Amino acid sequence: MADSLNPSPWHRLTAARPDWTRTVAARRAAAAGLVVLAAVAALRSDPHGDYTDIAVAAHDLSPGVALTAADIRLERRATAALPDGAQRDTDQVIGATLTAPARRGEVITDVRLLGSRLAESAAGPDARIVPVKLSDTALLDLIRPGDVVDVVTVTPDQDDRQPARPVVIASGAVVVLVSEKARGTSAGTDRVALVALPARSANEVAATTLVQAITLTIH
């Protein structure tokens, strides 16, 4: 009883401290604890599980050319940030043809390379990629990968008095590659466009190009 009626100076000092000082101290202690926990989690994370070696462009790349070992390098990237289809094995990339320009450091994915995965992503299951050699090569400078086009020809001339009529061989083809003009040449006679189509339409286009001139109309 006597102690409660005559408190010590220290007791008087601590009892007079306002509540907000206790709140600030508690918040500081909690913040310090979170920082410590974050540091521990970072130190204990498994770098091999969080990062993956994937194939990236070693320098700026142009489309239509087979990739070499000098074009690709492996680079360690965060696994969670990788796009679907990122290539982890350079052996699967070297020798493949890139379908669009790529900047240095860009991740190489399966749909950026000529193959069944690209055809499927562009034109659906069981799709095919067919080369189209155009009678009007100027069109090759106008179309780009991703453009949707129709493949058109004309009826064979059976009667000079009847004008030739256009025939749509395939509709809704997706351009996946336009070959570049060879350096030092002005003519584009060797250039082609690769388009993705369902298998039946692709075969019809391929057969027609053997005997008739064709062109494209752009959607």
Rank of each mutant, 00 (worst) to 15 (best):
P83T: 05
S186I: 10
A15I: 00
Q162T: 14
T137N: 09
L197S: 04
L13V: 12
T14R: 14
A26N: 08
I108T: 02
A32K: 09
T155Q: 11
Q158M: 08
K133V: 13
A202N: 03
V174H: 07
G115C: 05
A58H: 01
E180V: 10
E106H: 09
L37F: 08
E106L: 10
A16N: 08
E120I: 08
L177V: 01
A173V: 06
S62T: 15
L37N: 02
A25P: 00
Y51W: 13
G115T: 07
S121D: 12
R200Q: 14
A213M: 08
D46G: 07
D141T: 15
I94R: 02
T14N: 05
T52P: 00
V40M: 11
D91P: 00
A199W: 00
R73K: 15
P198A: 07
H59F: 06
A29W: 13
A164C: 00
G95V: 07
D160T: 03
E120P: 00
T215G: 14
R117F: 05
V132W: 03
P9A: 12
V154N: 13
R183I: 11
P18L: 05
V174Q: 05
A193H: 04
Q87A: 13
D46P: 05
A38H: 00
V192S: 13
P166R: 13
I54N: 01
L82D: 06
L113E: 05
D126R: 12
K181M: 11
H48F: 11
V205Q: 03
P163K: 09
A66I: 04
A42L: 14
H48M: 09
Q162P: 00
Q158I: 11
D71G: 03
N203L: 14
G64C: 08
I129D: 04
A202P: 03
T209V: 14
A164W: 00
P145G: 05
R144I: 05
V175F: 04
I218V: 15
L82E: 09
A123L: 04
G124H: 07
A202H: 04
D91F: 07
A32M: 08
V40N: 06
R73H: 08
V36R: 03
W20K: 04
R44Q: 13
R17K: 10
S45V: 09
A187S: 15
A25C: 11
L61E: 01
I54S: 06
R77F: 02
R22I: 08
V93N: 01
V107E: 03
R22F: 10
D71T: 03
D147N: 14
A187T: 15
P18W: 05
D126G: 09
